[in-house]
Design a protein around this nucleic acid. Sequence first.
DNA 1: CTGAAAGCGCTTACAG
DNA 2: CTGAAAGCGCTTACAG
Lengths: 327, 327
Amino acid sequence: MVKHGVVRLVDVAEQAGVTVSTASRALSRPEMVRPETRERVEAAARALGYVPNLAARSLITGRSGVVSVIIPDLSNEYYASIAQAAQVTAREHGYEVFIADSGFDPDRESALVDVASRGADGVIVCTAQRRHTVARDGVPLVYVNKMVRGHHAVVVDPHSVLEAQVDHLLALGHERILIATGPEIFWVSEVRSLHAARLAKRLPSITIDEYRGPSYGGGRRLVDHLDPSVTAVAALNDRQAIGILQRAAEVGIRIPDDLSVVGCDDLSTAAFVSPALTTVRVPTEALGRAAVSLLIDHVTDGGPVIAEQMVGELVVRDSTAPPRTAA
Amino acid sequence: MVKHGVVRLVDVAEQAGVTVSTASRALSRPEMVRPETRERVEAAARALGYVPNLAARSLITGRSGVVSVIIPDLSNEYYASIAQAAQVTAREHGYEVFIADSGFDPDRESALVDVASRGADGVIVCTAQRRHTVARDGVPLVYVNKMVRGHHAVVVDPHSVLEAQVDHLLALGHERILIATGPEIFWVSEVRSLHAARLAKRLPSITIDEYRGPSYGGGRRLVDHLDPSVTAVAALNDRQAIGILQRAAEVGIRIPDDLSVVGCDDLSTAAFVSPALTTVRVPTEALGRAAVSLLIDHVTDGGPVIAEQMVGELVVRDSTAPPRTAA
DNA sequence: CTGAAAGCGCTTACAG
DNA sequence: CTGAAAGCGCTTACAG
């Protein structure tokens, strides 16, 4: 009889009439034992309800079989979707995923990376903020949503997003376009600012807002500080865009008649708000998958540092239209 | 020098001039060593960048310090919010949380419970489906969103939800009310059906729909099968309610003029759809917190089986109004 | 308060 | 193909 209902490998071995060594091989490297031995061990394991002690295995192999994914906000569909895709892909590679939530707090993020590094074979840090996070030595790490010199990363190219937004608005005939870039604590904002500045130089009617953040509140405040001559806004993301929609409705700005708004991300909410939001779809699933693939196929092998860039895709809905003054 | 940059406790001990035993105590049970010894060990640990090998610790203590939370869909805000609250609470108790996604698949859910049981000190299974899930012997388990005889559980009382919905509609003057209960594969649906049947017996103008599921699609289909005399719908959840709103808009049913709709959950989307959805707010955070508290404070101590029931709270917005024929 | 020693459950060279 | 033995890094009675 085994104590406490916990079945160990030695119990299985005894039942099968072999030693632990053989039992271990039969279970983890079946090609190394005689077929009948394997069957006997497998039968014993099944009969006893054996489940390996992961801690022991991990102690000896030095691998845990888990990948940690750290995201800023679990209840934010955007990040959840990345984490979910990562999970699916990781499982395909035989890894479990451990998802943790930093609550957008850089300090907590660092702490989590640290904790995660201890137990995991690799960690994926999904974060927008530029503030540097350092993983423990020797633990493979991939960033999602920002590029950090010397580190692997998967990002959506901010240029492609801004271009999709602005091209769409220009095509509709807008000239007085406001580009929201967000503050430079965010990696995307930094890159977006550069590109926006370049655009503004070429097209002087373009203005830039770098103060309002990527949130509903940021969008609302943007409306309250809006130059009346602006006819279109390229928002930082959908949350900000939806905040703009909300506040605009409250203060009597009609969308898209008085103001066109284009978002970014394509949250599921984007299709339900009124008017339905024109936006740039971000391939969140691809981000998650790519991060895991990079981690497993590449980082672990000590390959060169890679930064994958993906592109967004414009989704036209009802929040954009030609400017009233034109057309 | 240590090999591979991996600092073990023995390295710290050596540096501090003590044995591993003392080093171990200094770090995990500081009150057992002399203050100056502790300081010496702590200094050494800091200097060397020591981080404990969790697998080794877990092997010997028999505890992993992790709680697994299994949810059906990570990118569903409702479940994400429960998981997030669970995570916060667990951390307050010194546990890390491991969140996994079953994709609404009962088989995968079972498999995940099984995998999770190996590594975790306890598991929280957040699931709507009645189909029974069995944890490994000896691993504490708490269900969220369904009650299972003989198991700990935290749920929102379906009676309270239905009552809030129906009372609101009755107060507005509705008589021809359709109650969507959902198919009985869901635990809530089972309970909700019972209560709905009782209501229908008392108020014969109430009808019941048990075919349409708790999804956007379910809501859309519900509209396509709607008896024109119905003036109000008590939906199974917000997703279904939003599906109703969408489809109603397409087929020219005005809401709330022609039809009142009340949802359940209060997803963030609920406030943004048009018209803004009247719904019953479910305390998802409280669910997550309670599940963890139950797991840690009670299940582990072998206390009696507990099923906590919480109640929803009506949030009135714009999708409900008095029936046109009345008032 | 500290040390020497055993042991957690597994895997894996090393012999046979 | 199988067994005996060592060892992964830690914790914890047991002596001192």
